[in-house]
Amino acid sequence: MLRPSGHLLEIHPAREVPFVLVRTDGKVVFAEADPGFDYDDDLEKAETAVAATLDRGLFVLERTRRFELRTHASSVEELLDHFAVTEAYDPEEKDETMQRFRDAMYERAQAALDRPATSRELIYVEPARMSRLTPVSRPGGSGRG
């Protein structure tokens, strides 16, 4: 499907645990890793798929960038409602123990949000990687980018 001059862009979470921040009046007053992060198996599948593509000589990896995808909300309820919608398409069973740790973390985050302040926001930070791969049929070609 990809033209010989084309590129494949692949985006997936990095192997770093996402974390939650609370910022009030411009200062970070709460920062904790997401204890409910349990995507190791999925990440391995993604990385294995990319590695297999490279090993088979179909593509070469040209460049990779790391970035952080940040989701901002005004409360824990608002953030979790948002994730409930976006994750509803592909639901995964959560480990009960992890879920308890996650609930406790969000309680602490909400407590930080509830302290007196003029401005406040909750931020979920998800480290991610974006890679550009190019078909091997055109090494050094004059394609886009």
Partner: peptide
């Protein structure tokens, strides 16, 4: 058919 294919958070 395409100049770019984006795998948008879809491998995992």
């Amino acid at each position: 058919a395409f100049d770019y294919t984006i795998l948008s958070w879809s491998l995992c």
